[in-house]
Design a protein around this nucleic acid. Structure first.
Lengths: 215, 215
DNA sequence: CTAGAACCGTACCGTACGGTACGGCTGCGG
DNA sequence: CCGCAGCCGTACCGTACGGTACGGTTCTAG
């Protein structure tokens, strides 16, 4: 529980959302080159308005990241009907959503932007991305894992360790390679193997933490 | 085998290495803010010399990253005496080196710099970091895994999958969280748990891929 | 001792970009 | 119809920084 993060929706007006969309598009296209003038031109608004609405460049960037990051959806699982089958399907759904998200251009752009930002003693963007990415997964996954343990479907001492193992098995080196622009790892390249990887990661996780044969 | 990468040592003179050291220090301290003037002042050299030696800002950055990244050492394992015990120790050594590297400030800075760079359609830095990081690990680890399979110590169909699983089990979410500047994950914080994590990752990997009880 | 190469320090130039100011257009309350 | 608020477009300002030019100093070769 490090720093209190502004998670609230902030309720942007439609016009403001159009501006943020323009900013995000530019971010995805031109990398971090994004200038205020470019955003203003793309969004057909004046720079004065940008500054009025978002304060400064950082404010615009923060609003963009925050607004977009909050869109990442996360599967919800009914913890009351946990069976081996339901557990497996839930885990697969988490893995699928996680993989699908991190290989998306938007996610890559957001992570790159936040990391660039973090390289300049500013960690606000990093915290927003973390909060809506890994930490959101953790919040959603942990209760399920613990419910599964209570139902004698999983066996572990610390749910934190189980969560992190799951994360590692799913993500592997995919995210860092995409962030670094690995030429041998295109988005479509990974996309084609999602289902295989999802299955493999789930199998491995259950092999490590399953209380019995959970096929 | 995407793009031919300049891996050669490039043989920098001591004076040039002093300049690169200064550049790296500034990179670690000030994040990506690094200006040519700042490097020149820190290294007590003239900007003219910087441009003469490294061409432009990108050249200096590239030289710095390349020179530093090449320093990452990687354990060498004698493949001829592979036993269960030697295999385990080798894996633990790989895991330890990998973890120790990625949590270091230098590694974080290099990765951040390369990612920032990759966000601007320049992927040269990213390739250098990849080549000396994940891909170097892979080159070193794969032969060992395959030797272990030949020795009936491990069981897998594709060494690529085994390597990536190992990577995931070791790194988990540590690297991305550090890159994003997670306030709840300090370097010393992680450092204290390296041995535990190394042990856990190795145990898990052997549990998944070991041909028998490999304790 | 001299010539020249290498290099330091500093001044300088051009430009890109963050941020501000302002004139003009549109729409709405009175 | 008037006035005002909000916003667009553009022009403008200040500065930071990449890159160049140049005079002065040290070192080396002959």
């Amino acid at each position: 529980m490090p720093v209190p993060i502004k998670i609230s929706e902030e309720t942007f007006t439609p016009r403001q959302q159009a501006v943020l969309t323009a900013a995000l598009d530019l971010l995805v296209e031109n990398g971090d080159g994004i200038t205020m003038t470019a955003v203003a031109r793309r969004a057909s608004c004046s720079k004065e308005t940008l500054y009025k609405w978002f304060g400064d460049r950082d404010g615009l960037l923060t609003a963009t990241v925050q607004w977009q990051a909050a869109k990442v959806r996360m599967p919800t699982v009914d913890r009351s009907h946990l069976s081996a089958k339901v557990l497996r399907e839930s885990l697969e759904q988490f893995a699928r959503d996680l993989l699908t998200t991190i290989i998306g251009e938007v996610s890559i752009t957001l992570n790159r932007t936040a990391i660039t930002h973090a390289a300049q003693e500013k960690d606000s963007l990093g915290n927003i991305v973390l909060e809506n990415g890994p930490l959101a997964i953790r919040r959603r996954l942990k209760p399920i894992l613990e419910a599964a343990r209570d139902a004698r479907l999983l066996r572990f001492s610390a749910s934190e360790d189980a969560y992190r193992t799951f994360f590692g098995l799913v993500v592997r080196d995919v995210q860092i390679r995409l962030l670094l622009g690995d030429s041998g790892l295109t988005q479509s390249n990974v996309e084609a193997n999602i289902e295989v990887d999802v299955k493999a990661a789930t199998d491995q996780f259950l092999a490590l933490y399953g209380a019995k044969a959970n096929l």
